[in-house]
Design a protein around this nucleic acid. Structure first.
Lengths: 134, 134
DNA sequence: CCGTATCCTGCTTGATACTG
DNA sequence: CAGTATCAAGCAGGATACGG
């Protein structure tokens, strides 16, 4: 109650509040698999086994956890087709699709600045080495 | 070598590659303290003790770890003023400042969609309860 | 095919105490 | 003031095996 969620003018008010629900988004982005899954689902519905193949080698348990979280937050839908063999499709909701844009921006930044970051790391590590030797 | 880092046309090529350095960015955003620190440093240099106060209650060890990572990646600079009492300022680099924009976009999305996400959670949890009772 | 159950391990986070 | 050292704990992530 001490922060105002409708304040989107740029002030880092409620982000600093650990209890603010907006923080869960950042956690989700940083989640090892969640943001990956969202981007894989960007274009079309994908079924479970297909998802497993596309997302390198993730164990079914972890993939299920990820999907459940995303489903609970209303970012993806889970559709069970009652047939043999079973078939379950996962698809982005409108809410989930609206996340694609900010996600893409971030990805663009990340990919564009990889060289700079790598260079910074090298410089930092070199400085560390020299400090140890000197 | 199987992916092209200069491909920023929108294809989710290298993001799916666990070895691609661009993935570290997502990890950093999801880091419990890193994105917080970056936003706190948005406007002005801040010294260590001040940082501790602004970012709720983080232990010095964890804060140091966070700052070291950000420094290593070239997002913040660490300036030691040789004086008594000691004074160390942390400040955003140009690279770090350039991250503020995509970060703000994400924050805007997060804050704007908190109600939707919360509602989705309620609906999901209710459905779970009914499934158990039914 | 689509998961769940169980167990395990490593890393992140943290509390506490101490040093330059 | 600005950290480091050490120890402890929790939990996300994963391997493996089994159920609907």
């Amino acid at each position: 109650m001490d922060t105002n969620p409708s304040d989107t003018t740029g002030l880092p008010a409620n982000v600093l509040d650990p209890d603010c629900p907006s923080r869960v988004i950042f956690q989700r982005i940083g989640d090892k698999w969640a943001s990956l899954v969202v981007q894989v689902l960007a274009d079309r519905p994908v079924r479970f086994s297909e998802l497993r193949k596309m997302v390198s080698v993730v164990t079914p348990k972890v993939l299920t956890q990820t999907l459940r979280s995303l489903e609970r937050d209303g970012l993806v839908t889970r559709t069970v087709h009652a047939q043999v063999p079973p078939r379950v499709d996962y698809e982005l909701t409108d809410l989930g699709r609206s996340l694609l844009e900010p996600l893409a921006q971030l990805r663009k930044w990340a990919e564009g600045n990889v060289p700079a970051i790598l260079a910074a790391r090298d410089a930092y590590d070199d400085a560390q080495d020299e400090a140890l030797l000197g």
